[in-house]
Nucleic acid binder design. Structure first.
Lengths: 230, 230
DNA sequence: GGTACATTTCGATCACCGTCGAATCGTACG
DNA sequence: CGTACGATTCGACGGTGATCGAAATGTACC
Protein backbone atom coordinates (compact mmCIF):
# COMPACT_ATOMS: atom_id res chain seq x y z
CA UNK A 1 0.00 0.00 0.00
CA UNK A 2 2.84 2.37 0.73
CA UNK A 3 3.81 4.34 -2.29
CA UNK A 4 7.42 5.36 -2.20
CA UNK A 5 10.68 3.78 -1.36
CA UNK A 6 12.07 5.35 1.68
CA UNK A 7 12.56 8.79 0.43
CA UNK A 8 11.53 9.87 3.88
CA UNK A 9 14.32 8.31 5.88
CA UNK A 10 16.85 9.31 3.28
CA UNK A 11 15.64 12.90 3.21
CA UNK A 12 15.37 13.01 6.97
CA UNK A 13 18.99 11.97 7.06
CA UNK A 14 19.89 15.06 5.09
CA UNK A 15 17.34 17.16 6.89
CA UNK A 16 19.29 17.80 10.03
CA UNK A 17 21.36 21.00 9.89
CA UNK A 18 24.46 19.38 11.33
CA UNK A 19 24.32 16.47 8.92
CA UNK A 20 23.54 18.75 6.00
CA UNK A 21 26.62 20.80 6.77
CA UNK A 22 28.72 17.67 6.89
CA UNK A 23 27.39 16.47 3.57
CA UNK A 24 27.91 19.87 2.01
CA UNK A 25 31.50 19.85 3.20
CA UNK A 26 32.00 16.39 1.74
CA UNK A 27 30.65 17.57 -1.59
CA UNK A 28 34.09 18.93 -2.31
CA UNK A 29 35.05 15.33 -2.86
CA UNK A 30 37.90 14.94 -0.46
CA UNK A 31 37.51 12.75 2.57
CA UNK A 32 37.42 14.47 5.93
CA UNK A 33 38.08 13.14 9.40
CA UNK A 34 35.37 12.89 11.99
CA UNK A 35 36.87 15.78 13.91
CA UNK A 36 36.99 18.06 10.90
CA UNK A 37 33.40 17.26 10.13
CA UNK A 38 32.44 17.98 13.72
CA UNK A 39 34.01 21.42 13.48
CA UNK A 40 32.47 21.94 10.06
CA UNK A 41 29.05 21.21 11.47
CA UNK A 42 29.59 23.17 14.64
CA UNK A 43 28.87 20.34 17.04
CA UNK A 44 30.90 18.37 19.52
CA UNK A 45 32.76 15.24 18.59
CA UNK A 46 30.22 12.97 20.27
CA UNK A 47 27.20 14.26 18.42
CA UNK A 48 29.20 14.27 15.23
CA UNK A 49 30.00 10.63 15.76
CA UNK A 50 26.33 9.90 16.22
CA UNK A 51 25.49 11.69 12.98
CA UNK A 52 28.27 10.00 11.08
CA UNK A 53 27.03 6.65 12.26
CA UNK A 54 23.57 7.37 10.96
CA UNK A 55 24.78 8.70 7.64
CA UNK A 56 26.96 5.66 7.26
CA UNK A 57 24.16 3.28 8.13
CA UNK A 58 22.00 5.12 5.63
CA UNK A 59 24.50 4.48 2.88
CA UNK A 60 25.18 8.14 2.18
CA UNK A 61 28.79 8.16 3.33
CA UNK A 62 31.52 5.61 3.86
CA UNK A 63 34.30 5.72 6.39
CA UNK A 64 37.83 4.37 6.13
CA UNK A 65 40.01 3.95 9.15
CA UNK A 66 43.50 5.29 8.70
CA UNK A 67 45.66 5.32 11.75
CA UNK A 68 43.77 6.83 14.59
CA UNK A 69 41.33 8.84 12.60
CA UNK A 70 38.51 7.88 10.34
CA UNK A 71 38.17 9.48 6.96
CA UNK A 72 34.64 9.90 5.74
CA UNK A 73 33.64 10.51 2.15
CA UNK A 74 30.43 10.50 0.17
CA UNK A 75 29.37 6.98 -0.71
CA UNK A 76 29.28 7.72 -4.42
CA UNK A 77 28.77 10.19 -7.23
CA UNK A 78 25.03 9.66 -7.11
CA UNK A 79 24.91 10.96 -3.56
CA UNK A 80 26.80 14.04 -4.70
CA UNK A 81 24.34 14.33 -7.55
CA UNK A 82 21.34 14.37 -5.26
CA UNK A 83 23.00 16.93 -3.03
CA UNK A 84 23.82 19.12 -5.99
CA UNK A 85 20.25 18.84 -7.23
CA UNK A 86 19.00 19.81 -3.81
CA UNK A 87 21.39 22.74 -3.75
CA UNK A 88 20.11 23.86 -7.11
CA UNK A 89 16.54 23.62 -5.93
CA UNK A 90 17.36 25.57 -2.79
CA UNK A 91 18.98 28.13 -5.06
CA UNK A 92 15.87 28.51 -7.18
CA UNK A 93 13.36 28.59 -4.38
CA UNK A 94 15.36 31.23 -2.61
CA UNK A 95 16.08 29.02 0.33
CA UNK A 96 19.65 30.11 0.36
CA UNK A 97 20.83 31.96 3.37
CA UNK A 98 23.57 34.39 2.51
CA UNK A 99 25.86 31.89 0.90
CA UNK A 100 28.70 34.01 -0.34
CA UNK A 101 31.11 31.30 -1.43
CA UNK A 102 34.65 31.06 -0.13
CA UNK A 103 36.33 34.24 0.97
CA UNK A 104 39.82 33.28 -0.05
CA UNK A 105 40.64 34.63 -3.51
CA UNK A 106 42.59 31.50 -4.38
CA UNK A 107 39.55 29.37 -3.61
CA UNK A 108 37.28 31.62 -5.61
CA UNK A 109 39.56 31.44 -8.62
CA UNK A 110 40.11 27.70 -8.95
CA UNK A 111 39.27 24.89 -6.60
CA UNK A 112 38.36 21.23 -6.63
CA UNK A 113 34.67 20.40 -6.51
CA UNK A 114 34.28 16.69 -5.91
CA UNK A 115 36.54 15.62 -8.78
CA UNK A 116 36.38 18.47 -11.24
CA UNK A 117 37.39 22.10 -11.49
CA UNK A 118 35.23 24.79 -9.91
CA UNK A 119 35.61 28.49 -9.25
CA UNK A 120 35.94 31.35 -11.70
CA UNK A 121 38.21 29.29 -13.89
CA UNK A 122 35.78 26.38 -14.04
CA UNK A 123 32.91 28.65 -14.94
CA UNK A 124 34.99 30.45 -17.56
CA UNK A 125 35.94 27.19 -19.23
CA UNK A 126 32.34 26.06 -19.52
CA UNK A 127 31.40 29.52 -20.81
CA UNK A 128 34.07 29.27 -23.46
CA UNK A 129 32.95 25.81 -24.54
CA UNK A 130 29.28 26.78 -24.78
CA UNK A 131 30.11 30.02 -26.58
CA UNK A 132 31.77 27.95 -29.30
CA UNK A 133 28.90 25.43 -29.32
CA UNK A 134 31.17 22.65 -28.25
CA UNK A 135 28.85 21.99 -25.40
CA UNK A 136 25.17 22.66 -25.76
CA UNK A 137 22.44 22.77 -23.17
CA UNK A 138 21.96 24.67 -20.00
CA UNK A 139 21.57 24.06 -16.32
CA UNK A 140 22.31 20.59 -15.20
CA UNK A 141 21.95 18.85 -18.54
CA UNK A 142 24.73 19.33 -21.04
CA UNK A 143 25.63 17.50 -24.23
CA UNK A 144 28.90 17.38 -26.11
CA UNK A 145 28.56 18.38 -29.76
CA UNK A 146 30.56 17.00 -32.68
CA UNK A 147 32.82 20.05 -32.60
CA UNK A 148 33.32 19.43 -28.90
CA UNK A 149 34.31 15.84 -29.54
CA UNK A 150 37.11 16.76 -31.90
CA UNK A 151 38.21 19.47 -29.50
CA UNK A 152 38.63 17.24 -26.49
CA UNK A 153 40.19 14.52 -28.59
CA UNK A 154 42.76 17.09 -29.71
CA UNK A 155 43.44 17.75 -26.04
CA UNK A 156 44.50 14.14 -25.71
CA UNK A 157 41.45 12.68 -24.00
CA UNK A 158 40.04 9.27 -24.87
CA UNK A 159 36.41 9.93 -25.63
CA UNK A 160 35.52 6.28 -25.88
CA UNK A 161 36.76 5.48 -22.40
CA UNK A 162 34.91 8.46 -21.01
CA UNK A 163 31.62 7.52 -22.60
CA UNK A 164 31.97 4.02 -21.24
CA UNK A 165 31.76 5.26 -17.68
CA UNK A 166 28.46 4.80 -15.98
CA UNK A 167 28.12 8.39 -14.91
CA UNK A 168 27.07 11.15 -17.32
CA UNK A 169 29.72 12.48 -19.66
CA UNK A 170 28.76 16.12 -19.24
CA UNK A 171 26.92 17.67 -16.38
CA UNK A 172 26.43 21.18 -15.15
CA UNK A 173 27.33 21.76 -11.53
CA UNK A 174 26.17 24.91 -9.83
CA UNK A 175 29.02 26.97 -8.51
CA UNK A 176 28.40 28.36 -5.06
CA UNK A 177 30.60 31.39 -5.31
CA UNK A 178 29.48 32.60 -8.72
CA UNK A 179 26.00 31.07 -8.82
CA UNK A 180 26.70 29.81 -12.30
CA UNK A 181 27.48 26.38 -13.72
CA UNK A 182 30.79 24.74 -14.39
CA UNK A 183 31.53 21.47 -16.11
CA UNK A 184 31.17 18.28 -14.07
CA UNK A 185 30.65 14.66 -15.02
CA UNK A 186 33.17 12.26 -16.52
CA UNK A 187 34.47 14.89 -18.91
CA UNK A 188 34.87 17.49 -16.19
CA UNK A 189 36.89 15.06 -14.10
CA UNK A 190 39.01 13.93 -17.03
CA UNK A 191 39.77 17.51 -18.02
CA UNK A 192 41.08 18.31 -14.57
CA UNK A 193 43.25 15.18 -14.58
CA UNK A 194 44.57 16.23 -17.97
CA UNK A 195 45.42 19.68 -16.64
CA UNK A 196 47.40 18.03 -13.85
CA UNK A 197 49.22 15.78 -16.31
CA UNK A 198 50.11 18.66 -18.57
CA UNK A 199 51.52 20.60 -15.66
CA UNK A 200 49.00 23.37 -16.14
CA UNK A 201 47.49 22.99 -12.71
CA UNK A 202 48.46 21.55 -9.38
CA UNK A 203 46.44 20.58 -6.36
CA UNK A 204 47.51 22.35 -3.15
CA UNK A 205 47.77 19.57 -0.62
CA UNK A 206 45.47 19.83 2.33
CA UNK A 207 43.21 22.39 0.69
CA UNK A 208 40.75 22.50 -2.16
CA UNK A 209 42.81 25.12 -3.94
CA UNK A 210 44.00 24.40 -7.46
CA UNK A 211 46.94 26.57 -8.39
CA UNK A 212 47.71 27.36 -12.02
CA UNK A 213 51.23 27.38 -13.42
CA UNK A 214 52.48 30.12 -15.70
CA UNK A 215 52.35 27.65 -18.56
CA UNK A 216 48.81 26.79 -17.57
CA UNK A 217 47.67 30.39 -17.57
CA UNK A 218 49.19 30.84 -20.99
CA UNK A 219 47.47 27.72 -22.27
CA UNK A 220 44.10 28.64 -20.83
CA UNK A 221 44.25 32.03 -22.44
CA UNK A 222 45.20 30.53 -25.75
CA UNK A 223 42.85 27.56 -25.80
CA UNK A 224 39.86 28.82 -23.92
CA UNK A 225 40.35 32.53 -24.43
CA UNK A 226 40.30 32.91 -20.67
CA UNK A 227 42.26 35.82 -19.30
CA UNK A 228 42.83 35.74 -15.59
CA UNK A 229 44.85 38.31 -13.73
CA UNK A 230 47.79 36.77 -11.99
CA UNK B 1 30.54 31.09 7.75
CA UNK B 2 27.77 28.69 6.92
CA UNK B 3 28.60 26.54 3.99
CA UNK B 4 25.52 25.39 2.21
CA UNK B 5 22.28 26.86 1.11
CA UNK B 6 19.47 25.50 3.09
CA UNK B 7 19.61 21.97 1.97
CA UNK B 8 18.68 21.11 5.50
CA UNK B 9 15.27 22.74 5.66
CA UNK B 10 14.46 21.54 2.19
CA UNK B 11 15.47 17.98 2.98
CA UNK B 12 13.74 18.09 6.34
CA UNK B 13 10.61 19.07 4.46
CA UNK B 14 10.83 15.84 2.50
CA UNK B 15 12.02 13.90 5.50
CA UNK B 16 8.70 13.43 7.19
CA UNK B 17 6.94 10.21 6.18
CA UNK B 18 3.57 11.87 5.69
CA UNK B 19 5.01 14.62 3.54
CA UNK B 20 7.15 12.17 1.61
CA UNK B 21 4.08 10.14 0.77
CA UNK B 22 2.29 13.24 -0.41
CA UNK B 23 5.19 14.26 -2.61
CA UNK B 24 5.48 10.76 -4.00
CA UNK B 25 1.81 10.82 -4.86
CA UNK B 26 2.20 14.17 -6.57
CA UNK B 27 5.08 12.79 -8.63
CA UNK B 28 2.48 11.35 -10.95
CA UNK B 29 2.05 14.89 -12.14
CA UNK B 30 -1.63 15.40 -11.61
CA UNK B 31 -2.83 17.79 -8.96
CA UNK B 32 -4.56 16.29 -5.94
CA UNK B 33 -6.90 17.83 -3.40
CA UNK B 34 -5.93 18.27 0.22
CA UNK B 35 -8.28 15.48 1.22
CA UNK B 36 -6.87 13.02 -1.28
CA UNK B 37 -3.38 13.81 -0.12
CA UNK B 38 -4.44 13.32 3.48
CA UNK B 39 -5.74 9.86 2.66
CA UNK B 40 -2.66 9.14 0.60
CA UNK B 41 -0.44 9.99 3.54
CA UNK B 42 -2.62 8.23 6.06
CA UNK B 43 -3.18 11.22 8.30
CA UNK B 44 -6.18 13.33 9.25
CA UNK B 45 -7.20 16.38 7.30
CA UNK B 46 -5.85 18.75 9.92
CA UNK B 47 -2.35 17.38 9.99
CA UNK B 48 -2.39 17.16 6.22
CA UNK B 49 -3.26 20.81 6.07
CA UNK B 50 -0.35 21.59 8.31
CA UNK B 51 2.01 19.63 6.11
CA UNK B 52 0.67 21.18 2.95
CA UNK B 53 1.19 24.60 4.42
CA UNK B 54 4.81 23.83 5.13
CA UNK B 55 5.46 22.28 1.76
CA UNK B 56 3.87 25.28 0.12
CA UNK B 57 5.87 27.75 2.19
CA UNK B 58 8.96 25.78 1.29
CA UNK B 59 8.27 26.21 -2.40
CA UNK B 60 7.98 22.52 -3.13
CA UNK B 61 4.31 22.51 -4.03
CA UNK B 62 1.76 25.06 -5.15
CA UNK B 63 -1.95 25.10 -4.43
CA UNK B 64 -4.78 26.38 -6.60
CA UNK B 65 -8.21 26.97 -5.19
CA UNK B 66 -10.98 25.58 -7.30
CA UNK B 67 -14.42 25.73 -5.85
CA UNK B 68 -14.33 24.45 -2.35
CA UNK B 69 -11.28 22.34 -2.62
CA UNK B 70 -7.65 23.16 -3.15
CA UNK B 71 -5.63 21.33 -5.75
CA UNK B 72 -1.98 20.85 -4.93
CA UNK B 73 0.73 20.04 -7.44
CA UNK B 74 4.51 19.96 -7.45
CA UNK B 75 5.95 23.44 -7.85
CA UNK B 76 7.94 22.47 -10.93
CA UNK B 77 9.77 19.81 -12.89
CA UNK B 78 12.92 20.40 -10.87
CA UNK B 79 11.15 19.34 -7.72
CA UNK B 80 10.06 16.17 -9.46
CA UNK B 81 13.64 15.72 -10.60
CA UNK B 82 15.01 15.88 -7.09
CA UNK B 83 12.35 13.48 -5.91
CA UNK B 84 13.18 11.06 -8.68
CA UNK B 85 16.88 11.33 -7.92
CA UNK B 86 16.14 10.60 -4.29
CA UNK B 87 14.04 7.64 -5.28
CA UNK B 88 16.87 6.33 -7.41
CA UNK B 89 19.30 6.72 -4.57
CA UNK B 90 16.94 4.96 -2.19
CA UNK B 91 16.71 2.21 -4.78
CA UNK B 92 20.45 1.78 -4.97
CA UNK B 93 21.13 1.93 -1.27
CA UNK B 94 18.45 -0.63 -0.63
CA UNK B 95 16.34 1.74 1.36
CA UNK B 96 13.23 0.60 -0.36
CA UNK B 97 10.63 -1.05 1.79
CA UNK B 98 8.64 -3.60 -0.13
CA UNK B 99 7.40 -1.25 -2.80
CA UNK B 100 5.47 -3.50 -5.09
CA UNK B 101 4.06 -0.89 -7.43
CA UNK B 102 0.39 -0.60 -8.25
CA UNK B 103 -1.70 -3.71 -7.96
CA UNK B 104 -4.09 -2.90 -10.78
CA UNK B 105 -2.92 -4.57 -13.99
CA UNK B 106 -4.02 -1.60 -16.07
CA UNK B 107 -1.83 0.67 -13.97
CA UNK B 108 1.09 -1.69 -14.23
CA UNK B 109 0.80 -1.84 -17.98
CA UNK B 110 0.61 1.85 -18.89
CA UNK B 111 0.13 4.89 -16.73
CA UNK B 112 1.02 8.54 -16.62
CA UNK B 113 4.07 9.49 -14.60
CA UNK B 114 4.21 13.25 -14.22
CA UNK B 115 3.85 14.01 -17.93
CA UNK B 116 5.21 10.94 -19.65
CA UNK B 117 4.41 7.27 -20.08
CA UNK B 118 5.31 4.80 -17.35
CA UNK B 119 4.54 1.16 -16.66
CA UNK B 120 5.52 -1.92 -18.61
CA UNK B 121 4.84 -0.14 -21.88
CA UNK B 122 7.01 2.82 -20.97
CA UNK B 123 9.87 0.55 -19.96
CA UNK B 124 9.48 -1.53 -23.11
CA UNK B 125 9.67 1.54 -25.32
CA UNK B 126 12.88 2.73 -23.76
CA UNK B 127 14.28 -0.78 -24.00
CA UNK B 128 13.47 -0.86 -27.68
CA UNK B 129 15.08 2.52 -28.30
CA UNK B 130 18.26 1.65 -26.44
CA UNK B 131 18.47 -1.76 -28.10
CA UNK B 132 18.57 -0.01 -31.45
CA UNK B 133 21.07 2.59 -30.17
CA UNK B 134 18.63 5.37 -30.76
CA UNK B 135 19.09 6.36 -27.18
CA UNK B 136 22.37 5.78 -25.45
CA UNK B 137 23.28 5.98 -21.82
CA UNK B 138 21.92 4.40 -18.74
CA UNK B 139 20.30 5.31 -15.50
CA UNK B 140 19.16 8.87 -15.28
CA UNK B 141 21.28 10.31 -18.02
CA UNK B 142 20.27 9.52 -21.57
CA UNK B 143 21.27 11.03 -24.90
CA UNK B 144 19.51 10.88 -28.24
CA UNK B 145 21.77 9.57 -31.01
CA UNK B 146 21.70 10.61 -34.65
CA UNK B 147 19.66 7.52 -35.51
CA UNK B 148 17.26 8.46 -32.75
CA UNK B 149 16.86 11.95 -34.14
CA UNK B 150 15.74 10.73 -37.54
CA UNK B 151 13.46 8.22 -35.85
CA UNK B 152 11.54 10.70 -33.77
CA UNK B 153 11.42 13.19 -36.62
CA UNK B 154 9.79 10.47 -38.68
CA UNK B 155 7.23 10.10 -35.93
CA UNK B 156 6.24 13.69 -36.55
CA UNK B 157 7.93 15.41 -33.64
CA UNK B 158 9.68 18.75 -33.92
CA UNK B 159 13.13 18.12 -32.55
CA UNK B 160 14.11 21.76 -32.63
CA UNK B 161 11.21 22.84 -30.45
CA UNK B 162 11.94 20.05 -28.01
CA UNK B 163 15.60 20.94 -27.65
CA UNK B 164 14.67 24.55 -27.05
CA UNK B 165 12.91 23.63 -23.83
CA UNK B 166 14.80 24.34 -20.67
CA UNK B 167 14.43 20.88 -19.26
CA UNK B 168 16.52 17.95 -20.49
CA UNK B 169 15.49 16.33 -23.72
CA UNK B 170 15.97 12.77 -22.52
CA UNK B 171 15.98 11.54 -18.99
CA UNK B 172 15.64 8.17 -17.37
CA UNK B 173 12.89 7.90 -14.78
CA UNK B 174 12.88 4.96 -12.45
CA UNK B 175 9.70 2.95 -12.67
CA UNK B 176 8.37 1.89 -9.33
CA UNK B 177 6.55 -1.21 -10.43
CA UNK B 178 9.30 -2.69 -12.56
CA UNK B 179 12.33 -1.07 -10.93
CA UNK B 180 13.65 -0.17 -14.34
CA UNK B 181 13.84 3.08 -16.25
CA UNK B 182 11.44 4.56 -18.73
CA UNK B 183 11.84 7.65 -20.88
CA UNK B 184 11.14 11.03 -19.27
CA UNK B 185 12.16 14.57 -20.12
CA UNK B 186 10.90 16.74 -22.96
CA UNK B 187 11.03 13.85 -25.41
CA UNK B 188 9.16 11.52 -23.11
CA UNK B 189 6.40 14.06 -22.65
CA UNK B 190 6.22 14.85 -26.36
CA UNK B 191 6.00 11.19 -27.26
CA UNK B 192 3.03 10.65 -24.98
CA UNK B 193 1.29 13.69 -26.46
CA UNK B 194 1.97 12.30 -29.90
CA UNK B 195 0.46 8.97 -28.92
CA UNK B 196 -2.66 10.80 -27.79
CA UNK B 197 -2.83 12.78 -31.03
CA UNK B 198 -2.44 9.68 -33.14
CA UNK B 199 -5.24 7.95 -31.27
CA UNK B 200 -2.92 5.23 -30.07
CA UNK B 201 -3.47 5.98 -26.42
CA UNK B 202 -6.04 7.69 -24.26
CA UNK B 203 -5.93 8.99 -20.74
CA UNK B 204 -8.60 7.49 -18.48
CA UNK B 205 -10.09 10.47 -16.73
CA UNK B 206 -9.73 10.53 -12.99
CA UNK B 207 -7.02 7.91 -12.94
CA UNK B 208 -3.44 7.62 -14.00
CA UNK B 209 -4.29 4.79 -16.37
CA UNK B 210 -3.38 5.16 -20.02
CA UNK B 211 -5.42 2.82 -22.19
CA UNK B 212 -4.12 1.68 -25.54
CA UNK B 213 -6.34 1.42 -28.60
CA UNK B 214 -6.23 -1.56 -30.95
CA UNK B 215 -4.54 0.64 -33.50
CA UNK B 216 -2.07 1.70 -30.86
CA UNK B 217 -1.19 -1.84 -29.90
CA UNK B 218 -0.64 -2.66 -33.54
CA UNK B 219 1.57 0.39 -33.99
CA UNK B 220 3.60 -0.30 -30.89
CA UNK B 221 4.26 -3.83 -32.00
CA UNK B 222 5.29 -2.66 -35.45
CA UNK B 223 7.37 0.36 -34.49
CA UNK B 224 8.85 -0.63 -31.19
CA UNK B 225 8.61 -4.36 -31.53
CA UNK B 226 6.64 -4.41 -28.33
CA UNK B 227 4.17 -7.24 -27.97
CA UNK B 228 1.70 -6.85 -25.15
CA UNK B 229 -1.03 -9.31 -24.44
CA UNK B 230 -4.42 -7.71 -24.71
C1' DG C 1 54.77 0.88 28.77
C1' DG C 2 52.82 5.37 29.43
C1' DT C 3 50.79 9.52 27.89
C1' DA C 4 48.12 12.11 24.49
C1' DC C 5 44.64 12.31 21.21
C1' DA C 6 40.88 10.83 18.00
C1' DT C 7 36.77 8.41 18.04
C1' DT C 8 33.08 6.05 19.93
C1' DT C 9 29.55 4.51 23.56
C1' DC C 10 26.38 5.35 27.24
C1' DG C 11 23.08 7.99 29.64
C1' DA C 12 20.24 11.89 30.65
C1' DT C 13 18.16 16.18 29.37
C1' DC C 14 15.35 19.01 26.64
C1' DA C 15 13.29 21.14 22.72
C1' DC C 16 10.97 20.56 18.61
C1' DC C 17 7.44 18.80 15.76
C1' DG C 18 3.94 15.55 14.24
C1' DT C 19 -0.54 14.27 15.70
C1' DC C 20 -5.34 14.77 16.60
C1' DG C 21 -9.85 16.94 18.92
C1' DA C 22 -12.59 20.86 18.64
C1' DA C 23 -13.84 24.94 16.51
C1' DT C 24 -13.90 28.35 12.47
C1' DC C 25 -14.14 29.82 7.71
C1' DG C 26 -15.69 29.46 3.10
C1' DT C 27 -17.98 27.36 -0.73
C1' DA C 28 -21.54 24.35 -2.88
C1' DC C 29 -26.08 22.50 -3.09
C1' DG C 30 -30.95 22.27 -2.28
C1' DC D 1 -31.29 30.74 3.75
C1' DG D 2 -29.94 26.53 5.89
C1' DT D 3 -27.40 22.41 5.66
C1' DA D 4 -23.38 19.77 4.26
C1' DC D 5 -18.72 19.35 3.35
C1' DG D 6 -13.95 20.53 2.39
C1' DA D 7 -10.13 23.10 4.23
C1' DT D 8 -7.88 25.59 7.72
C1' DT D 9 -6.76 27.35 12.55
C1' DC D 10 -6.03 26.77 17.46
C1' DG D 11 -4.53 24.36 21.36
C1' DA D 12 -2.73 20.55 23.82
C1' DC D 13 -0.49 16.20 24.08
C1' DG D 14 3.20 12.96 23.33
C1' DG D 15 7.22 10.90 21.28
C1' DT D 16 11.24 11.05 18.70
C1' DG D 17 15.71 12.66 18.24
C1' DA D 18 19.55 16.10 18.77
C1' DT D 19 22.69 17.49 22.10
C1' DC D 20 26.31 17.26 25.46
C1' DG D 21 28.88 15.39 29.88
C1' DA D 22 31.32 11.50 31.35
C1' DA D 23 33.62 7.43 30.43
C1' DA D 24 35.52 3.76 27.45
C1' DT D 25 38.12 2.10 23.46
C1' DG D 26 41.91 2.13 20.36
C1' DT D 27 45.90 4.11 18.06
C1' DA D 28 50.18 6.93 17.78
C1' DC D 29 54.21 8.86 19.55
C1' DC D 30 57.91 8.95 22.93
Amino acid sequence: MKVGPDIATLAALMGDPARANMLAALCAGQALTAGELAREAGVTAQTASSHLGKLSAGGLIAGRKQGRHVYYALAGPDVAGVLEALTGLAERTGHTRLRTGPREPALRRARVCYDHLAGDMGVAILDSLTARSMIVGSGETLVLSAAGETFITALGLDLGALSAQRRPLCKGCLDWSVRRSHLAGALGAALLQRFYALGWARRESGTRIVSLSARGLEAFREIFGVAVEA
